[in-house]
Nucleic acid binder design. Structure first.
Lengths: 219, 219
DNA sequence: GCATATTTGTCCGTATGTATA
DNA sequence: CTATACATACGGACAAATATG
Protein backbone atom coordinates (compact mmCIF):
# COMPACT_ATOMS: atom_id res chain seq x y z
CA UNK A 1 0.00 0.00 0.00
CA UNK A 2 2.07 2.90 -1.26
CA UNK A 3 1.50 6.62 -0.90
CA UNK A 4 -2.01 8.00 -1.02
CA UNK A 5 -3.17 9.37 -4.37
CA UNK A 6 -3.88 12.84 -3.01
CA UNK A 7 -0.95 14.99 -3.87
CA UNK A 8 -1.54 18.58 -2.93
CA UNK A 9 -2.60 20.66 0.00
CA UNK A 10 -2.68 17.95 2.59
CA UNK A 11 -0.61 20.06 4.95
CA UNK A 12 -2.80 23.14 4.52
CA UNK A 13 -5.97 21.09 4.78
CA UNK A 14 -4.81 19.45 7.98
CA UNK A 15 -3.70 22.81 9.36
CA UNK A 16 -7.24 24.15 8.91
CA UNK A 17 -8.72 21.18 10.74
CA UNK A 18 -6.28 21.48 13.61
CA UNK A 19 -6.81 25.24 13.90
CA UNK A 20 -10.53 24.68 14.26
CA UNK A 21 -10.01 21.90 16.77
CA UNK A 22 -7.84 24.17 18.88
CA UNK A 23 -9.94 27.32 18.61
CA UNK A 24 -13.11 25.30 19.10
CA UNK A 25 -11.84 23.84 22.32
CA UNK A 26 -11.67 20.23 21.15
CA UNK A 27 -8.02 20.31 22.17
CA UNK A 28 -7.50 21.78 25.59
CA UNK A 29 -4.72 24.33 26.16
CA UNK A 30 -1.62 22.70 27.55
CA UNK A 31 -2.50 19.31 26.12
CA UNK A 32 0.44 17.56 24.54
CA UNK A 33 0.05 16.23 21.04
CA UNK A 34 1.79 12.99 20.24
CA UNK A 35 3.06 12.83 16.71
CA UNK A 36 2.43 9.15 16.25
CA UNK A 37 -1.03 9.11 17.83
CA UNK A 38 -2.34 12.21 16.05
CA UNK A 39 -0.89 11.07 12.75
CA UNK A 40 -2.77 7.82 13.17
CA UNK A 41 -6.04 9.53 14.07
CA UNK A 42 -5.83 11.96 11.17
CA UNK A 43 -4.60 9.20 8.88
CA UNK A 44 -1.58 11.09 7.66
CA UNK A 45 2.08 10.34 7.97
CA UNK A 46 4.22 11.64 10.78
CA UNK A 47 6.37 13.68 8.43
CA UNK A 48 3.34 15.51 7.08
CA UNK A 49 2.02 16.18 10.55
CA UNK A 50 5.36 17.62 11.57
CA UNK A 51 5.06 20.22 8.82
CA UNK A 52 1.62 21.15 10.08
CA UNK A 53 3.10 21.54 13.55
CA UNK A 54 5.69 23.97 12.19
CA UNK A 55 2.95 26.11 10.69
CA UNK A 56 0.80 26.25 13.81
CA UNK A 57 3.80 26.79 16.06
CA UNK A 58 4.78 29.79 13.96
CA UNK A 59 1.22 31.06 14.37
CA UNK A 60 1.43 30.82 18.12
CA UNK A 61 -1.24 28.14 18.49
CA UNK A 62 1.18 25.41 19.48
CA UNK A 63 4.32 25.51 21.55
CA UNK A 64 7.33 23.43 20.74
CA UNK A 65 9.77 22.15 23.34
CA UNK A 66 12.89 20.43 22.02
CA UNK A 67 12.75 16.68 22.35
CA UNK A 68 9.43 16.98 24.15
CA UNK A 69 7.14 17.56 21.22
CA UNK A 70 4.39 20.09 20.84
CA UNK A 71 1.52 21.13 23.07
CA UNK A 72 -1.46 23.41 22.66
CA UNK A 73 -0.37 26.88 23.76
CA UNK A 74 -1.80 28.16 27.02
CA UNK A 75 -2.71 31.83 27.02
CA UNK A 76 -1.13 33.80 29.84
CA UNK A 77 -1.93 37.16 31.40
CA UNK A 78 1.23 38.54 29.86
CA UNK A 79 0.17 37.29 26.43
CA UNK A 80 -3.25 38.94 26.71
CA UNK A 81 -1.75 42.22 27.84
CA UNK A 82 0.66 42.10 24.93
CA UNK A 83 -2.07 41.25 22.46
CA UNK A 84 -4.18 44.23 23.47
CA UNK A 85 -1.20 46.56 23.33
CA UNK A 86 -0.50 45.39 19.80
CA UNK A 87 -4.14 45.68 18.82
CA UNK A 88 -4.20 49.29 20.02
CA UNK A 89 -1.07 50.07 18.09
CA UNK A 90 -2.41 48.59 14.87
CA UNK A 91 -6.15 49.09 14.87
CA UNK A 92 -6.44 52.67 16.08
CA UNK A 93 -4.20 54.26 13.43
CA UNK A 94 -5.74 52.04 10.76
CA UNK A 95 -9.17 53.37 11.58
CA UNK A 96 -8.03 56.94 12.18
CA UNK A 97 -6.44 57.19 8.74
CA UNK A 98 -9.06 55.19 6.90
CA UNK A 99 -10.65 56.22 3.66
CA UNK A 100 -14.43 55.99 4.37
CA UNK A 101 -15.18 54.40 1.02
CA UNK A 102 -12.55 51.70 1.25
CA UNK A 103 -13.70 48.22 0.21
CA UNK A 104 -13.10 46.90 3.71
CA UNK A 105 -15.84 49.16 5.01
CA UNK A 106 -18.33 46.80 3.40
CA UNK A 107 -16.72 43.92 5.27
CA UNK A 108 -17.19 45.84 8.50
CA UNK A 109 -20.88 46.22 7.68
CA UNK A 110 -21.30 42.53 6.98
CA UNK A 111 -19.62 41.70 10.27
CA UNK A 112 -21.91 44.06 12.17
CA UNK A 113 -24.99 42.45 10.67
CA UNK A 114 -23.72 38.96 11.35
CA UNK A 115 -23.01 39.86 14.95
CA UNK A 116 -26.48 41.33 15.30
CA UNK A 117 -28.14 38.20 13.92
CA UNK A 118 -26.04 35.94 16.11
CA UNK A 119 -26.87 38.01 19.18
CA UNK A 120 -30.58 37.61 18.52
CA UNK A 121 -30.00 33.85 18.42
CA UNK A 122 -28.05 34.24 21.67
CA UNK A 123 -25.18 32.40 19.99
CA UNK A 124 -22.30 34.19 21.72
CA UNK A 125 -19.59 32.18 20.09
CA UNK A 126 -20.80 33.31 16.69
CA UNK A 127 -21.02 36.86 18.02
CA UNK A 128 -17.39 36.59 19.02
CA UNK A 129 -16.39 35.37 15.56
CA UNK A 130 -18.26 38.20 13.87
CA UNK A 131 -16.64 40.67 16.23
CA UNK A 132 -13.17 39.43 15.30
CA UNK A 133 -14.11 39.71 11.64
CA UNK A 134 -15.10 43.32 12.28
CA UNK A 135 -11.68 44.09 13.71
CA UNK A 136 -9.90 42.20 10.96
CA UNK A 137 -11.73 44.46 8.51
CA UNK A 138 -10.50 47.50 10.43
CA UNK A 139 -6.93 46.31 9.97
CA UNK A 140 -7.63 45.69 6.30
CA UNK A 141 -8.36 49.41 5.95
CA UNK A 142 -4.63 50.01 6.15
CA UNK A 143 -4.06 48.05 2.92
CA UNK A 144 -0.94 46.43 4.32
CA UNK A 145 -0.46 42.74 3.57
CA UNK A 146 2.09 42.41 6.36
CA UNK A 147 -0.15 44.05 8.92
CA UNK A 148 -3.08 41.91 7.82
CA UNK A 149 -1.03 38.74 8.14
CA UNK A 150 0.22 39.76 11.55
CA UNK A 151 -3.29 40.43 12.76
CA UNK A 152 -4.46 37.04 11.52
CA UNK A 153 -1.91 35.45 13.81
CA UNK A 154 -2.98 37.63 16.73
CA UNK A 155 -6.62 36.82 16.08
CA UNK A 156 -5.88 33.11 16.23
CA UNK A 157 -4.32 33.58 19.64
CA UNK A 158 -7.34 35.55 20.80
CA UNK A 159 -9.72 32.83 19.70
CA UNK A 160 -7.61 30.42 21.73
CA UNK A 161 -7.95 32.65 24.79
CA UNK A 162 -11.70 33.05 24.30
CA UNK A 163 -12.07 29.32 24.01
CA UNK A 164 -10.33 28.95 27.34
CA UNK A 165 -12.59 31.54 28.95
CA UNK A 166 -15.70 30.07 27.46
CA UNK A 167 -17.74 32.56 25.50
CA UNK A 168 -20.12 34.08 28.01
CA UNK A 169 -22.60 36.69 27.03
CA UNK A 170 -20.99 39.62 28.78
CA UNK A 171 -17.69 39.00 26.96
CA UNK A 172 -19.13 39.73 23.51
CA UNK A 173 -22.67 41.05 23.71
CA UNK A 174 -21.97 44.68 24.66
CA UNK A 175 -19.97 45.33 21.51
CA UNK A 176 -22.55 44.60 18.87
CA UNK A 177 -24.05 48.06 19.08
CA UNK A 178 -20.74 49.76 19.72
CA UNK A 179 -19.31 48.30 16.51
CA UNK A 180 -22.31 49.54 14.58
CA UNK A 181 -21.74 52.98 16.01
CA UNK A 182 -18.05 52.95 15.11
CA UNK A 183 -18.94 52.05 11.54
CA UNK A 184 -21.51 54.85 11.40
CA UNK A 185 -18.90 57.39 12.51
CA UNK A 186 -16.50 56.16 9.88
CA UNK A 187 -18.94 56.45 6.99
CA UNK A 188 -19.89 59.90 8.32
CA UNK A 189 -16.19 60.71 7.81
CA UNK A 190 -15.65 61.40 11.49
CA UNK A 191 -12.56 59.23 11.85
CA UNK A 192 -11.31 60.91 15.05
CA UNK A 193 -14.47 60.04 16.94
CA UNK A 194 -14.50 56.53 15.48
CA UNK A 195 -10.93 56.05 16.64
CA UNK A 196 -11.80 57.28 20.13
CA UNK A 197 -14.65 54.80 20.33
CA UNK A 198 -12.41 52.01 19.15
CA UNK A 199 -9.93 52.83 21.85
CA UNK A 200 -12.69 52.79 24.43
CA UNK A 201 -13.77 49.40 23.12
CA UNK A 202 -10.27 47.99 23.43
CA UNK A 203 -9.94 49.22 26.99
CA UNK A 204 -13.29 47.77 28.03
CA UNK A 205 -12.69 44.47 26.29
CA UNK A 206 -9.22 44.11 27.75
CA UNK A 207 -10.55 44.73 31.23
CA UNK A 208 -13.27 42.12 30.89
CA UNK A 209 -10.96 39.52 29.44
CA UNK A 210 -8.39 40.10 32.15
CA UNK A 211 -10.90 39.78 34.95
CA UNK A 212 -12.43 36.66 33.44
CA UNK A 213 -8.93 35.29 33.23
CA UNK A 214 -8.21 36.14 36.85
CA UNK A 215 -11.38 34.32 37.93
CA UNK A 216 -10.22 31.32 35.96
CA UNK A 217 -6.82 31.18 37.59
CA UNK A 218 -8.15 31.53 41.14
CA UNK A 219 -9.52 27.99 41.18
CA UNK B 1 24.78 3.98 7.63
CA UNK B 2 21.73 4.87 9.71
CA UNK B 3 20.53 8.29 10.90
CA UNK B 4 23.08 10.89 11.87
CA UNK B 5 23.88 11.10 15.60
CA UNK B 6 22.90 14.76 15.86
CA UNK B 7 19.50 14.93 17.38
CA UNK B 8 18.43 18.49 17.96
CA UNK B 9 18.35 21.80 16.21
CA UNK B 10 19.26 20.68 12.75
CA UNK B 11 16.28 22.52 11.34
CA UNK B 12 17.06 25.73 13.22
CA UNK B 13 20.74 25.46 12.42
CA UNK B 14 20.02 25.00 8.73
CA UNK B 15 17.54 27.86 8.80
CA UNK B 16 20.24 30.18 10.11
CA UNK B 17 22.61 29.13 7.34
CA UNK B 18 20.00 29.58 4.65
CA UNK B 19 18.94 32.98 6.01
CA UNK B 20 22.53 34.15 5.80
CA UNK B 21 22.95 32.73 2.32
CA UNK B 22 19.86 34.59 1.17
CA UNK B 23 20.55 37.88 2.94
CA UNK B 24 24.21 37.71 1.94
CA UNK B 25 23.33 37.37 -1.69
CA UNK B 26 24.73 33.88 -2.19
CA UNK B 27 21.27 32.92 -3.38
CA UNK B 28 19.86 35.37 -5.88
CA UNK B 29 16.25 36.56 -5.58
CA UNK B 30 13.95 34.56 -7.82
CA UNK B 31 16.24 31.56 -7.88
CA UNK B 32 14.42 28.29 -7.45
CA UNK B 33 15.66 25.90 -4.80
CA UNK B 34 15.47 22.23 -5.59
CA UNK B 35 14.76 20.09 -2.57
CA UNK B 36 16.89 17.18 -3.65
CA UNK B 37 19.85 19.21 -4.81
CA UNK B 38 19.99 21.54 -1.83
CA UNK B 39 19.47 18.66 0.57
CA UNK B 40 22.46 16.98 -1.01
CA UNK B 41 24.62 20.07 -0.81
CA UNK B 42 23.74 20.75 2.80
CA UNK B 43 23.99 17.06 3.59
CA UNK B 44 20.59 16.83 5.24
CA UNK B 45 17.50 14.88 4.31
CA UNK B 46 14.75 16.24 2.13
CA UNK B 47 12.22 15.99 4.95
CA UNK B 48 14.36 18.15 7.17
CA UNK B 49 14.91 20.68 4.42
CA UNK B 50 11.19 20.89 3.78
CA UNK B 51 10.66 21.93 7.39
CA UNK B 52 13.28 24.64 6.95
CA UNK B 53 11.44 25.79 3.83
CA UNK B 54 8.21 26.13 5.82
CA UNK B 55 9.97 28.34 8.34
CA UNK B 56 11.58 30.65 5.81
CA UNK B 57 8.43 30.83 3.71
CA UNK B 58 6.52 31.97 6.78
CA UNK B 59 9.21 34.61 7.31
CA UNK B 60 8.78 35.93 3.81
CA UNK B 61 12.27 35.01 2.60
CA UNK B 62 11.06 32.24 0.32
CA UNK B 63 7.97 31.95 -1.81
CA UNK B 64 6.13 28.71 -2.24
CA UNK B 65 4.20 27.74 -5.36
CA UNK B 66 2.16 24.53 -5.17
CA UNK B 67 3.80 21.65 -6.98
CA UNK B 68 6.53 23.99 -8.16
CA UNK B 69 8.62 24.19 -5.05
CA UNK B 70 10.16 27.21 -3.42
CA UNK B 71 12.14 30.14 -4.75
CA UNK B 72 13.97 33.02 -3.11
CA UNK B 73 11.50 35.88 -2.74
CA UNK B 74 12.01 38.88 -4.96
CA UNK B 75 11.39 42.22 -3.25
CA UNK B 76 8.91 44.43 -5.06
CA UNK B 77 8.17 48.11 -4.90
CA UNK B 78 4.90 47.32 -3.20
CA UNK B 79 6.70 45.25 -0.59
CA UNK B 80 9.14 48.03 0.21
CA UNK B 81 6.38 50.60 0.49
CA UNK B 82 4.51 48.28 2.82
CA UNK B 83 7.58 47.59 4.92
CA UNK B 84 8.24 51.27 5.50
CA UNK B 85 4.61 51.92 6.37
CA UNK B 86 4.78 49.16 8.95
CA UNK B 87 8.08 50.40 10.30
CA UNK B 88 6.61 53.86 10.82
CA UNK B 89 3.61 52.42 12.59
CA UNK B 90 5.72 50.34 14.94
CA UNK B 91 8.96 52.22 15.51
CA UNK B 92 7.70 55.74 16.02
CA UNK B 93 5.28 55.00 18.88
CA UNK B 94 7.83 52.65 20.45
CA UNK B 95 10.35 55.44 20.61
CA UNK B 96 7.85 58.13 21.54
CA UNK B 97 6.63 56.20 24.57
CA UNK B 98 10.00 54.81 25.58
CA UNK B 99 11.39 54.86 29.07
CA UNK B 100 14.84 56.47 28.68
CA UNK B 101 16.48 54.00 31.05
CA UNK B 102 15.13 50.88 29.42
CA UNK B 103 17.64 48.08 28.94
CA UNK B 104 17.28 48.31 25.17
CA UNK B 105 18.78 51.80 25.24
CA UNK B 106 22.14 50.16 25.88
CA UNK B 107 21.61 48.01 22.80
CA UNK B 108 20.96 51.16 20.81
CA UNK B 109 24.26 52.56 22.05
CA UNK B 110 26.18 49.44 21.09
CA UNK B 111 24.62 49.54 17.63
CA UNK B 112 25.62 53.18 17.17
CA UNK B 113 29.22 52.44 18.09
CA UNK B 114 29.36 49.41 15.83
CA UNK B 115 28.00 51.44 12.93
CA UNK B 116 30.56 54.14 13.60
CA UNK B 117 33.44 51.67 13.61
CA UNK B 118 32.19 49.96 10.46
CA UNK B 119 31.83 53.31 8.71
CA UNK B 120 35.45 54.16 9.46
CA UNK B 121 36.40 50.84 7.84
CA UNK B 122 34.14 51.82 4.94
CA UNK B 123 32.39 48.45 5.36
CA UNK B 124 28.90 49.53 4.32
CA UNK B 125 27.37 46.12 4.68
CA UNK B 126 28.37 46.03 8.33
CA UNK B 127 27.05 49.58 8.70
CA UNK B 128 23.72 48.35 7.36
CA UNK B 129 23.64 45.47 9.83
CA UNK B 130 24.39 47.75 12.75
CA UNK B 131 21.72 50.13 11.57
CA UNK B 132 19.11 47.36 11.54
CA UNK B 133 20.24 46.37 15.03
CA UNK B 134 19.67 49.96 16.13
CA UNK B 135 16.09 49.86 14.88
CA UNK B 136 15.48 46.42 16.34
CA UNK B 137 16.50 47.90 19.69
CA UNK B 138 13.99 50.71 19.20
CA UNK B 139 11.25 48.14 18.75
CA UNK B 140 12.49 46.31 21.83
CA UNK B 141 11.73 49.47 23.83
CA UNK B 142 8.06 48.55 23.57
CA UNK B 143 8.62 45.33 25.56
CA UNK B 144 6.26 43.42 23.32
CA UNK B 145 7.34 39.90 22.31
CA UNK B 146 4.87 39.85 19.44
CA UNK B 147 6.03 43.17 18.07
CA UNK B 148 9.65 42.12 18.39
CA UNK B 149 8.99 38.90 16.52
CA UNK B 150 7.12 40.73 13.81
CA UNK B 151 9.95 43.18 13.35
CA UNK B 152 12.47 40.36 13.08
CA UNK B 153 10.54 39.08 10.09
CA UNK B 154 10.40 42.55 8.53
CA UNK B 155 14.10 43.04 9.11
CA UNK B 156 14.86 39.81 7.28
CA UNK B 157 12.91 41.07 4.29
CA UNK B 158 14.78 44.36 4.38
CA UNK B 159 18.14 42.61 4.38
CA UNK B 160 16.95 40.73 1.32
CA UNK B 161 16.10 43.99 -0.41
CA UNK B 162 19.42 45.59 0.57
CA UNK B 163 21.25 42.57 -0.75
CA UNK B 164 19.49 43.04 -4.06
CA UNK B 165 20.39 46.71 -4.17
CA UNK B 166 23.94 46.09 -3.18
CA UNK B 167 25.04 48.09 -0.16
CA UNK B 168 26.33 51.33 -1.55
CA UNK B 169 27.69 53.98 0.72
CA UNK B 170 24.90 56.48 0.29
CA UNK B 171 22.30 53.90 1.34
CA UNK B 172 23.65 53.53 4.87
CA UNK B 173 26.35 56.07 5.60
CA UNK B 174 24.20 59.16 6.28
CA UNK B 175 22.41 57.52 9.19
CA UNK B 176 25.32 56.79 11.48
CA UNK B 177 25.32 60.27 12.95
CA UNK B 178 21.55 60.62 12.82
CA UNK B 179 21.14 57.48 14.91
CA UNK B 180 23.60 58.82 17.46
CA UNK B 181 21.58 62.02 17.65
CA UNK B 182 18.29 60.13 18.09
CA UNK B 183 19.83 58.19 20.95
CA UNK B 184 21.08 61.39 22.55
CA UNK B 185 17.59 62.92 22.44
CA UNK B 186 16.14 59.84 24.04
CA UNK B 187 18.54 59.76 26.97
CA UNK B 188 17.92 63.49 27.37
CA UNK B 189 14.26 62.48 27.85
CA UNK B 190 13.15 64.43 24.81
CA UNK B 191 11.14 61.63 23.25
CA UNK B 192 9.02 63.89 21.01
CA UNK B 193 12.07 65.26 19.23
CA UNK B 194 13.62 61.80 19.02
CA UNK B 195 10.42 60.50 17.43
CA UNK B 196 10.39 63.37 14.93
CA UNK B 197 13.96 62.59 13.93
CA UNK B 198 13.13 58.92 13.54
CA UNK B 199 10.26 59.78 11.27
CA UNK B 200 12.55 61.97 9.19
CA UNK B 201 15.00 59.09 8.96
CA UNK B 202 12.32 56.70 7.76
CA UNK B 203 11.19 59.12 5.09
CA UNK B 204 14.71 59.72 3.82
CA UNK B 205 15.64 56.07 3.88
CA UNK B 206 12.46 55.03 2.10
CA UNK B 207 13.08 57.58 -0.62
CA UNK B 208 16.65 56.40 -1.20
CA UNK B 209 15.69 52.74 -1.25
CA UNK B 210 12.84 53.37 -3.66
CA UNK B 211 14.98 55.33 -6.08
CA UNK B 212 17.77 52.77 -5.94
CA UNK B 213 15.14 50.17 -6.68
CA UNK B 214 13.78 52.12 -9.61
CA UNK B 215 17.29 52.41 -11.08
CA UNK B 216 17.63 48.66 -10.73
CA UNK B 217 14.41 47.91 -12.57
CA UNK B 218 15.12 50.25 -15.46
CA UNK B 219 17.78 47.94 -16.89
C1' DG C 1 19.92 5.68 40.92
C1' DC C 2 19.29 2.45 37.20
C1' DA C 3 17.19 -0.16 33.63
C1' DT C 4 13.51 0.24 30.42
C1' DA C 5 9.84 2.08 27.57
C1' DT C 6 8.19 5.95 25.01
C1' DT C 7 8.71 9.63 21.95
C1' DT C 8 11.09 12.87 19.24
C1' DG C 9 14.48 13.90 15.57
C1' DT C 10 16.37 12.46 11.49
C1' DC C 11 17.37 9.53 7.85
C1' DC C 12 16.28 6.61 3.57
C1' DG C 13 13.61 4.43 -0.15
C1' DT C 14 9.72 4.68 -2.90
C1' DA C 15 5.20 5.83 -5.20
C1' DT C 16 2.46 9.27 -7.59
C1' DG C 17 0.90 13.37 -9.71
C1' DT C 18 2.23 17.74 -11.97
C1' DA C 19 5.04 20.59 -14.84
C1' DT C 20 8.27 21.17 -18.49
C1' DA C 21 11.59 20.25 -22.28
C1' DC D 1 3.07 13.82 -27.14
C1' DT D 2 6.28 11.50 -24.79
C1' DA D 3 9.99 11.56 -21.63
C1' DT D 4 11.96 13.45 -17.80
C1' DA D 5 12.44 15.97 -13.73
C1' DC D 6 10.60 17.33 -9.56
C1' DA D 7 7.46 18.24 -5.69
C1' DT D 8 4.43 15.88 -2.63
C1' DA D 9 3.49 12.30 0.46
C1' DC D 10 3.98 7.72 2.43
C1' DG D 11 6.17 4.18 5.55
C1' DG D 12 9.93 2.16 7.96
C1' DA D 13 14.23 2.50 10.42
C1' DC D 14 17.26 3.89 14.19
C1' DA D 15 19.74 7.13 17.58
C1' DA D 16 19.18 10.17 21.26
C1' DA D 17 16.57 12.34 24.77
C1' DT D 18 13.00 12.02 28.04
C1' DA D 19 9.72 9.80 30.98
C1' DT D 20 8.57 5.69 33.78
C1' DG D 21 8.82 1.90 36.80
Amino acid sequence: MPARPVTAGLVEHTAVSLREAIAGGALAPGQRLSEAKLAGELDISRNTLREVFRLLTQEGLLRHEPNRGVAVAVPSMAAILDIYRVRRLIEVPSLAQAWPRHAAVARMGVAVERAHAAAQDRDWRRVGSANMEFHAAIVALADSPRLTGFFTRIAAEMRLAFGLLGSPEDLHAPYVDLNREILARLVAEDQPEAARMLEAYLTMSERKVMSAFARLESD
